[in-house]
Design a protein around this nucleic acid. Structure first.
Lengths: 345, 345
DNA sequence: CAGCGTAATGTATGCGCATACATTTTTGAT
DNA sequence: ATCAAAAATGTATGCGCATACATTACGCTG
């Protein structure tokens, strides 16, 4: 594929002519480049005295190692690529925060990109990322194009897929069973005595799978159809309000429970219900998904499906580190989920 | 500084022995490495026929260019570094989404890290990022250590500071005047007839500056002290509730207006007021900050201070691109702000 | 058809570092 | 004091690509 980007081409490209290298530092410290390199990556192999002189030379020159050259020579970039659907969705970014922090402690940096729920742009991004020769790569979800799978396998690096599980991961996956989660919520609400239910779902493949599992199971249990309001784009309070309004205005759903694909839309649904005079959960119960930080702080406190995101972050990071270190690793990690009963359902 | 990270050291380091290079592609297409390189970056300088053969060879081999080697040879990484305080705060991530997208269209990738509101870790991160030889770097805020400034200047690349303005930027800054925003809110609330006010502020340097400007101005206008509830960490609905509760329980603030450092804490404050039976804005008015996507969707709709984040993203990206292309650029961009009057104040 | 400009490709080189291997210096045990 | 092992440092080399420069193959003008 020819490179069709416009390349920047200005005065700043001429910089670097004067940048300090290990050779410069070495000259100042009276040693060669190799010793400087060693002083930085294997300080125990360099005498106390030279170490000090090199350190002084580094301070004096303001030397900043060139990780690009280092990566080329060593074939290790200390970079881990990560692709997430959205940069603004806390569900993904809070995971990333944990993941990055954990990896940083082991000397790795994370190169993060947003794929935007779009398969085509994911393919392009995977190629771009692989060109940076990351030491590992993390993807969201388990559905990737054949081309992507091929490139990933060809890269010969650990690949972690998160937020979902499958028996056939590219390499490693860490997540939970969305189908089971949908079913579980259906059973929970049925057990609570609800005869009717509806769903509010965002345009997210995993959310849609939870929704369909929920609808299928709830219909089986209660013999009543489950209307769905698709919020169209990504979940938000506004989208949740709109969807709730739509359900009330355009379906015969008037009492029962609503299963939302996100805590955000659940929160929006509750706000809409309140402004219309419905009581939650007495008139209509609401279940969210994700257990976001605010779930316990709204009124009524939100009943929701919780997945241990901290553990997700740790497991994903550890899997990467284990693989990189050649330690044995499980290829499928099922985090499970938990229905957190609060007051809204 | 010696590298004290544990280095991963496992089986995966041996990979790459078999990775396809331009030389391999060239051999298959009957040309040399140079022609392959040209085919990729200057396709117009290669004949139609060879171009096709090279393309075929690329497809056949699954060649993925090595951007690391490219960067070393060309001294351009096509990377732009970005440091933001928090990955989970939509205020920063929504900016990043715009910024990254814009730069991606011009062939640049963004290397994003979270600094965590902590100056020491910012210094370390700046060094790490500079070692990757980014073509430009973006920082949040205008307060950086001397060491950081020195390193940044030595890097000889465009530096953009966002979310704040100063007469003395390292290179370029894009933001607005937080002091002026605080004053403006004070004047707005005074004009609305409020004689009393309080503030709810998170532990964020810029938020604290808005708060102190607000308090100073409001006190000057109304001769009444402005109690503050610091939420301690980062803003959230929960922190807002707690702070509001604290104000009511532990100060003599009972009526008037509350200026919150974030829409999130404002939302929390409103929830707390509602559960305690206060009417918003009749009993207590609430002003937020940031105009997050939900601000208009809660009840009552939130009056807040809006900054054009989209424009911030575009301006920051364009400034970088202009600098890189050697075009003339303004060094200080004041975005201004706007008080968005809705129902909560 | 000489002569020259242009298009198309190739050759040579080095970016800054890590690493294998070679050499020198130091240490300690006898 | 002697020698082998260990510690400390150096030499040589190449990672994969971009770029300056050299070469070759073709037109085209007069």
């Amino acid at each position: 594929m020819p490179n069709d980007h416009k390349m920047a081409d200005g005065i700043f490209n001429k910089r670097d002519t004067s940048r300090v290298t290990m050779t410069d530092v070495g000259r100042l410290a009276g040693v060669t480049q190799v010793t400087v390199s060693r002083a930085l990556s294997h300080p125990d192999k360099v005498s106390k005295d030279t170490l000090r002189r090199i350190q002084d030379a580094i301070d004096a020159t303001g030397f900043v190692p060139n990780a690009v050259a280092g990566a080329l020579a060593s074939k290790r970039s200390n970079l881990v690529s990560a692709l997430i659907p959205s940069l603004t969705n806390v569900v993904y970014t809070s995971f990333m925060a944990t993941f990055s922090q954990h990896l940083r402690q082991h000397g790795y940096q994370v190169l993060l990109s947003e794929t935007g729920f779009d398969a085509a742009s994911e393919d392009a991004l995977i190629a771009t990322h692989l060109s940076r020769r990351p030491d590992a790569i993390l993807l969201t979800g388990i559905h990737h194009s054949d081309k992507a799978r091929k490139q990933l396998q060809g890269a010969g690096i650990p690949v972690v897929e998160i937020w979902d599980i499958t028996d056939d991961p590219i390499d490693i996956c860490v997540g939970f069973n969305h189908h089971a989660a949908g079913r579980a919520v259906a059973e929970y609400l049925k057990a609570k005595g609800h005869a009717f239910a509806a769903t509010i779902t965002a345009d997210d493949e995993r959310a849609l799978r939870r929704q369909s599992a929920f609808a299928e199971r709830f219909t089986a249990l209660s013999q009543s159809a489950v209307p769905d309001a698709n919020t169209g784009g990504t979940a938000s309070i506004g989208a949740g309000r709109e969807a709730m309004a739509h359900l009330i205005d355009h379906s015969d759903f008037r009492k029962g429970a609503v299963f939302c694909s996100s805590d955000l839309s659940a929160h929006g649904a509750i706000i809409e219900l309140h402004t219309r005079g419905y009581k939650v959960p007495q008139d209509i119960a609401v279940v969210g998904f994700g257990d976001q930080d605010f779930a316990g702080d709204i009124d009524p406190a939100l009943t929701t499906v919780a997945v241990d995101r901290l553990q997700l972050g740790h497991l994903a990071a550890n899997s990467v580190l284990d693989k990189l270190a050649g330690r044995p690793t499980k290829s499928v990690h099922d985090l499970g989920f938990k229905i957190l009963t609060r007051l809204s359902a």
